[in-house]
């Protein structure tokens, strides 16, 4: 017997991400407790919290790498597994999570972002090497490389890139998926000022095109300037609302104290896009 995962909703615009009473633990150590989140589609959310606050755990649950102890998770009103198979969830990993020694070029790395969509290609196409993939996939790859300003490095091995370039390749790979929901794990960590501007402008364009952007970050400044809403998290939700209400000393102090329970302040939820 399996509980139906898909909850039928009559609202025309479901939340991009909806999490109800979610708890998760590693080896019996709780990381997330009773978390409720509703992220509207088409908005830019910044998730802020100290290390070990469960930010990455939240992503791992959305990606299906980790199973929650309790609670319900839906993406666009559906089971996340189904949304992943449909290619609606793109993920930009932290730089350390990727094997940079792997024998693969920049453009082939970005092409892996299209592997989900290639499932709909005719079967004989899929038996050819990726180099001969349909031109619609390569068009997207070239466009994404152009967008992150890495066209000139297309055939370089990924191991030969600098830190900022590696980040931009990871972003291009996530964008190549053309997903409705973008999950970004610290997209700004360790990048130079020029790369940071480029990444933030690119994400702003994604949001303007109607995509949902969710990023974990430690950078208050960019969160204040770019995000529509900020989610403060430390094992449970500390606060959620407009950046100006959340990124104040009092709220940040509450977030920094581990295990701080009650919800301090929560703005009424944003209207779903537009």
């Amino acid at each position: 017997m399996r509980k139906p995962d898909v909850v039928l909703r009559l609202t025309p615009k479901p939340m991009a991400v909806e999490v109800k009473r979610l708890s998760a633990a590693y080896d019996g150590q709780p990381v997330l407790e009773d978390v409720d989140i509703a992220l509207p589609a088409g908005k830019w959310t910044a998730i802020i919290g100290p290390n070990g606050a469960g930010k990455s755990t939240l992503f791992r649950i959305l990606l299906g790498v980790m199973k929650p102890l309790r609670g319900e998770v839906t993406v666009h009103g559906e089971d996340p597994a189904r949304q992943r198979r449909l290619g609606h969830i793109a993920y930009m990993a932290q730089q350390e999570a990727v094997e940079w020694d792997f024998p693969i070029s920049v453009q082939d790395t970005v092409l892996t972002g299209r592997f989900g969509h290639m499932r709909t290609d005719p079967w004989w196409r899929r038996l050819l090497p990726p180099r001969w993939a349909e031109s619609r996939h390569w068009d997207v790859v070239h466009r994404c490389l152009e967008a992150v300003n890495m066209r000139d490095f297309a055939s370089r091995p990924i191991g030969a890139l600098s830190g900022g370039q590696k980040k931009r390749v990871l972003l291009a790979r996530a964008l190549a998926q053309e997903a409705r929901l973008l999950l970004l794990d610290e997209p700004l960590a360790g990048v130079d000022a020029a790369s940071e501007r480029l990444i933030l402008d690119l994400l702003a364009r994604q949001r303007a095109a109607g995509r949902t952007v969710v990023m974990v970050t430690h950078d208050m400044d960019s969160a204040r300037r770019y995000a529509d809403q900020v989610l403060l998290i430390n094992r449970t939700i500390v606060g959620m609302g407009a950046p100006d209400n959340m990124l104040v000393d009092e709220m940040l102090a509450c977030t920094a104290v581990a295990g701080w329970r009650p919800v301090a302040r929560r703005d009424p939820p944003l209207e779903a896009f537009p």
Binding site: R84, A93, F102, T112, G113
Partner: peptide, 22 residues
């Protein structure tokens, strides 16, 4: 040959493979 792309993706970046619904 037949599963080159899933194998490549899983070897290179299992999280990405998971995100793409493999």
């Amino acid at each position: 040959w037949a599963f080159y792309r899933p194998l490549l993706l899983y070897t290179f970046d299992p999280m990405q493979a998971q995100a793409l619904g493999f």
